[in-house]
Structures are given as structure tokens and as C-alpha cells.
Design a binder for these strands. Structure first.
Lengths: 163, 163
DNA sequence: TCGACGAGTTTGACATGTCAAACAGATCTC
DNA sequence: GAGATCTGTTTGACATGTCAAACTCGTCGA
């Protein structure tokens, strides 16, 4: 096994900083979300994604895809949110297998109020801490990393084979 | 409730980009770590932190603090890692309450091999995707956010009171 | 030295996430 | 048109994280 290229000091600083920021920023935003709106991150992600869908409803499979969740995780989560009256399930007329999640009145009111607090929280702890150049630079950085990752995890890398 | 300052397009792009990068990058690194070394993120964090401590051992409380974990979470995690032979527990001679985690031979060998793969994974999916300016810029950005967060979550904001 | 309190850790009950198996309705094929 | 198979979803068992209570030893003050 060849000796790996270890990280330089600058690289290590950035990597550790990123990891620490990820941990603490998530923690803070999650705390705010719970305190302000009584929602978990998972709750909020489901509510916002469904609320942006046409007709404020979405098939489970599409929702799972958008959130990058497993079907099973989503099913459990929706069951719990259903019990709290935030969402409801409905069958589909054209395809008997598929199920649809839709927001209840309560869910809709909840997500609207939550969004107001959440955007304030994101500004307070993240966006407003940075200047315009920082925001632009970070945007470029995430674009690069995401472009790389979508290559790596591409469905099936087209593989040529002799006819 | 006042209308909040919503995010501008650039801010939204950066925020969503950050969130997606966080999700996908973590996922990829976790996958690599599991495939290369059979470890979870939690395992790896415990092993590396203990391995860097003097004498390759650490009191549970200090380890929990370093990882920003609850005492309970760490206790459960250590129990499981103990069952797999990666770490061991030992009491402290000077303080009967405190317990110490230390690496077994197997744990030490495992973390050394894992680190080699892990740094390669971090380079491949993150550091090497960026150029020097990006790395520097991201370092400054995380510094700013972390400085803000450490203020916000400061132990007890010194509050003046009339004598 | 005794009892109250505090610190460090563990435990148990419960919430949430993952994995594989089960299910039920669509679709394909002969 | 009757399997066989595929797709979308659910279920159940188990792994992991959280919270509060319990436990154990140390420390302090009368």
C-alpha cells in the first residue's frame, strides 16, 4: 500500500473547519427549528417539499427521490407525521399501487409559519455572517463538488463493449 | 409578525448548494469508509480521537466533549465497539468514578489502515476537486461561521446584574 | 464522620433510520 | 388470460441516537 498524500496544513484546516461547521451549524439550526416551530429537520424537509409541489401533493416515490431518502424511511416518517395531523395519505386513481402525500390545513399553516422563522435562523447563523464575495465563492465551491459527486454516483457509467 | 427578509437568488443558490453538498458528500464518504474499512463515521471519529490522545487513551467525559456527543451516546457506542474488540474500558486509579477508553491492538491497526483510505476519499471527493483559492476561501468562510456560532452557543453569556 | 450534594458514567425506555422481506397492483409473454 | 415478473409501498426486526433516571464515587460542611 503506497504512502498516501496526506493533507497540507491549509487543506487540513479547511477540511476540519468544514466538518466542524457542518456539525455545529446543523445543531444550531435544528435547535432553532424545534424551538420555533416544534418540527424536526425531517418534518420540515417533507413539509416544504410537498408544499412546493403542484397541488401541494406528491407521490411517495417522487418525494423520496427529491429528498434522497429510502422509500422505507419516508413511509415511516409519513406515518408519524400523519398521526400528528400534518399530512395525509391518498391513493391514486390511475395507479393503484402508488400513494400520495398531501398537506393538511394544519400542515400548511405550520410550514408557512416555520419558514419565516427558519429563513431568519439561516440568515442569522450563516448567510448574514458572510459577505457577498463569500456567498459567491461558496456557491462556486458547492457547484464544483456537486458536479464531481453527480459523476461519481451516476446511475450507470456508460460502458463500451465490443459488439 | 413582520415579513422576513427572504434569501436573494445568489444566497438561495449557495444555501441549497451547501445543504445538498453536505448530504451527498457525507453519504459518499460514509459509503467509502464502510466499504474500505468496515467502520461507521461514529466508529472512525472515536478511533481517531482516542488514537491522537496521549497514551492512546482518553476519559469518557473528555472524549464526549471533543466529539460534542452526549455522555450517554458515547457510552452506548463504546459498549458496541468494545464488543467488536476495537476498544476497551479501564477504570482510573485516582478517581473511582471516571472510566477510560483505550485502543486495542486491533483498534489501532484498524484506524491506521482506515486513515489511509479515508484521506484518499476526502481528497478524491472534496479537496482535489477544488483549487488552492477555493480551499483558502472555504477556510475563511468556515472560520467566520464558527466564530459566530461559538459566540451564540457560549457557555453562559456573562450577564450583568445590579449588585 | 455523617449526610447532602455534585460529578462521571451507565442504564432503560423510547424515537428514528436501515435493511430485507412481504405485499399488492401493473405489465409482459406465451 | 394466467402465470411470471416488475414497480411502488409497507412492514417488522434490528441498529443507533436521545432523554431522563439511576448508580457510584468524591467533596464539602456541620
Amino acid at each position: 500500500m503506497p504512502e498516501p498524500r496526506w493533507l497540507t496544513d491549509a487543506e487540513m484546516h479547511t477540511w476540519l473547519g468544514y466538518r466542524r461547521m457542518r456539525t455545529l451549524l446543523d445543531l444550531q439550526l435544528t435547535r432553532d427549528l424545534g424551538a420555533d416551530s416544534g418540527l424536526s429537520d425531517a418534518d420540515y424537509d417533507v413539509l416544504t417539499t410537498v408544499s412546493e409541489a403542484p397541488g401541494r401533493q406528491l407521490r411517495l416515490g417522487e418525494l423520496a427521490g427529491a429528498l434522497r431518502w429510502s422509500a422505507s424511511r419516508l413511509s415511516h416518517q409519513v406515518t408519524r407525521m400523519q398521526q400528528r395531523g400534518l399530512v395525509a395519505r391518498a391513493g391514486s386513481p390511475d395507479d393503484g399501487r402508488s400513494a400520495t402525500v398531501l398537506l393538511t390545513e394544519h400542515g400548511w399553516a405550520t410550514v408557512q409559519a416555520a419558514a419565516v422563522h427558519h429563513v431568519a435562523s439561516v440568515r442569522r447563523h450563516f448567510i448574514d455572517v458572510l459577505n457577498e464575495q463569500d456567498v459567491a465563492a461558496l456557491g462556486r465551491i458547492t457547484d464544483k463538488v456537486l458536479a464531481h459527486l453527480s459523476e461519481v454516483t451516476a446511475p450507470t457509467p456508460p460502458r463500451r463493449r465490443v459488439s
